[in-house]
Amino acid sequence: MRSFNFIGTWTLFQRESRRFLRVKMQTIVAPALTAILYLIVFRYAMGERSVPGLDVDYFSFLIPGLMMMAMLQNAFANTSSSMIVGKIMNVHVFLLMAPISAGEAVFAFLAAAVLRALVVGGVLLLVLLPFSDLSLAHVWMILFYGICGSLIMGSLGLIGGMWSKTFDDMAMVNNFIIMPLTFLSGVFYSVSQLPPFWQAINAWNPFFYLIDGFRHGFIGTGDSDPWQAIGAVGAMTLLSIMAAWYLWHIGWKLKE
């Protein structure tokens, strides 16, 4: 029976974490600045109005959505960029040659993706909190959705990175799948404002549950049924991790 390669997994986690910490301007400061710019723009565009259907001002509604969006995008970026750079620079062969199993590799990659998402989310919270009267209604929900969302996006980033052959492929996944799904998931508006048809469509957008549930943790209310959302997010998390593990295990697009 094979024993767990603890040092190997820890080393890979360190490598993947140091990679983003080494380029902090790009990985932490830039997402924070982007979120602040969104806030400034929407603050002046929307004024003091509150969100229909939810008893909350637009600023408090927007902040958790922007935080979660930045966290999701950064978790995705951490694993996908490492995979695609590794493949293009041919460095991924060192990972394949090392005695690191698919489970250990996926664990280390996802742990680093979650760390990056939490660092980005934490920085945003510290920067934005002083400018709002946002509360932390249910901390466990914030953590549950924050971590599950990062795990899902980290897994999708791994899969996207395995699939991509070029930076262009990766940009395509990011711009045509990830960005629309995150933008159209209720970051900037409450889905109760949408026509019934689009509300029904939205119920199938996994990112909607992540953002709505995460926001629920802050403002204490949301668009979706909390238990339905927890079930959907939990299942999605397991499914995406298992898919990433399986594809790594069979060496999909990694081994000839």
Partner: peptide, 13 residues
Amino acid sequence: EILRFSRGMYGQK
């Protein structure tokens, strides 16, 4: 750093 990481990934301190 690369050598340290390489050694670590093979499960060695």
